[in-house]
Nucleic acid binder design. Structure first.
Lengths: 171, 171
DNA sequence: ATTTTATGTCAGCCATATTGACTTATTTAC
DNA sequence: GTAAATAAGTCAATATGGCTGACATAAAAT
């Protein structure tokens, strides 16, 4: 029992714990994003399309700039995906009222339906994990996850109710 | 106060909570993987190289099959990356003793050094998040993350000490 | 009137993944 | 001992989703 509390052993436990953390993130993200791929393939879409649909659905009326900031990609990368989604009637663009340079993005009915379909499995996966882990564990999960996220992005996760009406960002 | 406990409101809270879960996973993974990219670029490597180096470092002597299963990619995809890492002296292959068809993978000294450098920031990020959240939150985090991971991969995360010597998998 | 901003587009490049077909050693099974 | 299965590798073609750089247009801000 002496060595169990030894420094070396503590270091080993810590190293193992941290590595498991790294790997849990890898596998959770991998398994989590794998599910919608089948559905996306039916539409000739990829994960990039899902992300766009997701975040437009999340913040209806979001500007292109804000969407770019959220996704963390260049406008050229977004362009290909977004044009497709607009062309195929999943997203509509309407000029901003205050600033007519903006093209505010919204899901169409078709877009909402696809978003639902794509995200449903993921929602269920999270719901199941939350349910099985219990409320207290979920609080711990949130706490650690927020610590992992860059400080600049933490404002996206209000403790309780988010402000309604205006989506996040400058818009 | 009446509507706070109403069914609609509960559903909204639940929907919001689940969506935040989805998004936390997205941002955490994004921010988490962004850091090593700078270092990788110096070597002309990408994230795929990091993953290979990481898991070979994690399970020295791992077989190509096991590595493929862990990464969840095809051998053709692995091939390019792995050949590069072998050619540039970050990984060595040695024939398996029991089964000489196998090419067991190990990091060289150079490989270990790079793995350290690449993973160090990630380790620190996790360590900080764990430290700030506290032991109880970490337990909750683990619980939820394991629930998110496909059942088949959960065996990779033993509650306490992993078996020493032989790495996981059939090997 | 000039500059800045929001958005879009063209062109080319790179990394990483895929499928399919085929090869070479080696081990396992009959 | 021969046949079948397995571990690993390779060649070729393709798709996806990023990137940079350069340039265009309209609207807002100075």
């Amino acid at each position: 029992m002496a060595d169990i509390k030894s420094g070396v052993n503590l270091l080993f436990l810590r190293e193992e714990e941290l590595r498991q953390g790294i790997e849990m993130l890898f596998f959770a993200y991998r398994d989590f994003t794998a599910e919608p791929d089948v559905i996306l393939a039916d539409y000739g879409f990829g994960r990039a399309h899902h992300r766009v649909i997701y975040f437009v659905g999340r913040s209806p009326g979001i500007t292109v700039s804000d969407l770019l900031a959220t996704l963390g990609i260049t406008k050229q990368s977004l362009s290909r995906v977004l044009s497709q989604l607009v062309a195929e009637g999943f997203i509509i663009q309407t000029p901003g009222l205050r600033d007519r340079r903006q093209r505010l993005l919204e899901l169409t009915g078709k877009g909402v339906a696809l978003e639902r379909q794509l995200t449903e499995e993921q929602r269920q996966r999270i719901a199941r994990a939350y349910r099985e882990a219990g409320a207290e564990a979920v609080q711990g999960f949130r706490k650690v996850m927020l610590g992992l996220i860059d400080e600049k992005d933490r404002a996206r996760f209000p403790q309780r109710l988010p402000a309604r009406g205006l989506p996040r960002g400058r818009s």
